[in-house]
Structures are given as C-alpha cells and as structure tokens.
Design a protein around this nucleic acid. Sequence first.
DNA 1: TCTGGGGTCCTAGGACCC
DNA 2: TCTGGGGTCCTAGGACCC
Length: 453
Amino acid sequence: MRRQATILHLDLDAFFAAVEQRDKPSLRGKPVVVGGLGHRGVVSTASYEARLFGVRSAMRTAEARARCPHAAYLSGRFDAYRAASRVVMGRLREISPLVEPLSLDEAFVDLAAGDESRHLDLDGVTALAEQVRADVAERTGGLTASVGAASSKFLAKIASELAKPDGSYVVAPGTEIATLDPLSVRTIPGVGPVTAERLRRIGVHTVEQLRRLDLLELTSLLGTAYGTSLHSLARGEDHRGVVAERETKSLSVEDTFETDITDPRVLADVATTMSRRVSERLRANATSGRTVTLKIRHHDFETHTRSATLAGPTDDARVIARTVTGLLAEIDTSSGIRLLGVGVSGMADWVQDDLFPPDDDELAAATGSTGAATTLAGEPDIATAGAVPRPLRARSRWAPGADVVHDEHGPGWVWGSGLGRVTVRFETATTGPGPVRTFDAEDPSLTPGTVEP
DNA sequence: TCTGGGGTCCTAGGACCC
DNA sequence: TCTGGGGTCCTAGGACCC
C-alpha cells in the first residue's frame, strides 16, 4: 500500500439521467428515469429526484412507474453519454497518462504516474480532486462528479462512494482501517446480496466484524479466491495497480423478447441475425474468438448456456451462426424462450480461418466483401513482390480490404484506426506474432498493399 | 406486466496427457 | 495390485458490477 493517497476514483453522479437533464432544461429538478421502456424493461439510472420515490437501478420500469408516475421515462441516448464520457476521460488523462476507465461514468487515475512536481500530500490531492470536479462540470455543461482518493484502488472507490453526490473525499493515509470499520460489508465492491446474506448469518454486518474473522473461516465460507481477497480488503490491503488498457475477454449480444418465442425457426433466424451483430462488433474491434456461446432464458427465467470451441478463432458471421444454431437445436424451446444471446470468448487478435476456407459460393453470399484482401488499383501486389510472407488477414477501415506494407517490418495488417492514427500488427502466417506499431494515418511509409487470394 | 444488456472473475467436474 | 498426481483444456453455472 502506498504512503500517499495517490489513487483517484471519479464517478459521475446519476450519469445518464444527468445528461438528459443537462440537455433538456425542462427536466432539471424533476425525477428522470433512463432505462428500458418496454413491459420487460428495467431502470438503468434514476435521477436523485426519482430516487426520493424509491426508484433504483435494476428495478423493473413497471415498478418505477408505480412508485413515481410523474417522472420522465427515457430510453437513453448512448451517443450523448459516450461524448460526455470522452470529455471526462480526457480531463483525467491531463492529470496522468495512467487512467483506467471502468465504464462510461467511472475511472481510476494513478496520480503517481503523472506530473512529478505535483504535491501529493493530503492538501495537494484534496485541491486536485476539487479542481477536477470543477473542470468536469465546466467542460460537460454542468455534470457533477464525485471524487475519492486514497492509497489504493479499493479505498479510492469507497471514498468516492462516501463523497456522493457531488463531493470529494480523501482518505488520509493511516486512517484506512478507521474509515472502513463502521461501513456495511455491502459497501465493499464485490460483496453483493448473496455474500452479504452469508455473512449476516454468521453475525457479520460491518467491515470491522469482517476483519475479526480469520482467513480459514472466510475461505471455508466463501471459497479460496474470494475469501482471501475479502480478508485483505477488510484490512484495507489492496495492491492492484491502475491498468490503462485491458484486453477484451469476451463479446456478446443478447435480446429479451417482448413476448416469448416458441417457434424454432424464428429462434434460428434470431440467432443468425445476432451472430451477424457479434461478427460486426468483432471486426470493428479487430478481434476474433474461438469459443461460441449460446445463452437461452426460458419463460420461467431459468437460464442456460451452451458453448462450443472451434479449432481456430473466427469473426465470421456464418461460422458463428452455424455453431450457435447447432447448439440451439439441442435445447427444448417448446415452453417459450424470453431471451437469446450469442457470444464469443477465447479471443485472439487474428483470424485462423485459413483452416476452414469458405468456398466461393459462401464468399459470394457474404456481405459483398469477401473479408479477404483485394488488390487496390495501381498498387503493387506483395504476393508477387518477392518472398514476402502472407499476412493472415487484412481488415481496415483506414484502407478497407487492403494490407499495409511497411518496409522495415514487412507486411502487416491494420487492426485499429481512428483519430488520425492507424495501428498495424506485423503478424504473418509464416513469421507468427510480430510487433504492433501505431502510425499517423498520413504516414507516407504506410503503403496500401494486398495479399494473394 | 416479474426480473436489461454488456461485461468480469471464480468454481467444479470430466477428459486427457505425461 | 485395488484406485498416483499434477497440469491444462473445456463446459456450465453463479455472483457481481455498471
């Protein structure tokens, strides 16, 4: 644990609802509920005015309407939320390059990785927290944030919780245990209703009582990993670092239907459509996965998953759809299905579809592009340019369907682009994983090329 | 009118290999 | 002769978070 409160946690207050109130002045000071509006919808965010009526996140919208009929019910404008989030994260990155977003409205910042001349004593951090809050409000047109700072991620998050709404709280180093002790175990991130109930049954309600349990008691009650981590957290011990970039572990799409579906043909169609959505998102993220999972929720809310692991990773809608409809065929859907989901995990950042080359008819039936690279008019064909290894796959929004050649590293493919930057992975079938480099999109050394069919 | 959608991490059992 | 033991991969389910 650090000797100074150098980890900061920022959390925007009632974020989605606050953006709506900002953009529509008539909603200010009034209860606002953002969430699903259908008869199976649930509340995503309730403004503080709506919380006064007992409306909470994850509550059924129908129940929220009963509690607070005069609130404004909105389905959400995620583009606006993403835009506001970008502004806030941008402000945080001015403090330190080490920013770990947890969601659109939350992030950790490692102050120790920032400006070395900054004073990180209690007064310095407190002033910084207040400055950030003021800047966020100014730059976002009035959104309020709660900011916590402490010597670890865990305590910084607790601190921002204690600061809510619209405040800041710095846990002075040395006062961690005293701060934690009186709190309910439910305040600990990771302790949900089930764990809280298990602890309640042995008479544990507060962190102080939790701290009095020995490691063996905790691990036998909650399992090795969870018991050990709670044992540490109850003592304020948390050595996790702030991680700026996290690799995606899985990607999925799911839909709850307005009414249950029983017709297997309809379900197969839905699964196929959702496979396409998964594929599009995989390609947009330049990733692929080897395990395909089908999720089914029956009319009685009983939920099951079925998965299959392929020989190699895929981002191909047809491969995903074929796998998922195969899994679906094994499930009895006659009593009605309320939710269907399609997901991919076991991610790789390249596609090994050379193992299962689609035939020409399949390629022609695909979205119009083959997914494989095509030759750009007037550009040299690297397959004929000599003994250059063939990239596994070319994908790019920067140069659709084309590889990128860079003289120093040979052929590579674009796997990320945006904001005038292009990220290229120099990985080929014969050389295996190579370096990843980011270029300016205008960089003259980036030459659109092609691969053999 | 029962209970969203997108994730993460952990557990446990069986298969399989050495 | 009764029944190793560890490591890894895969599958299914569950708790939890925003």
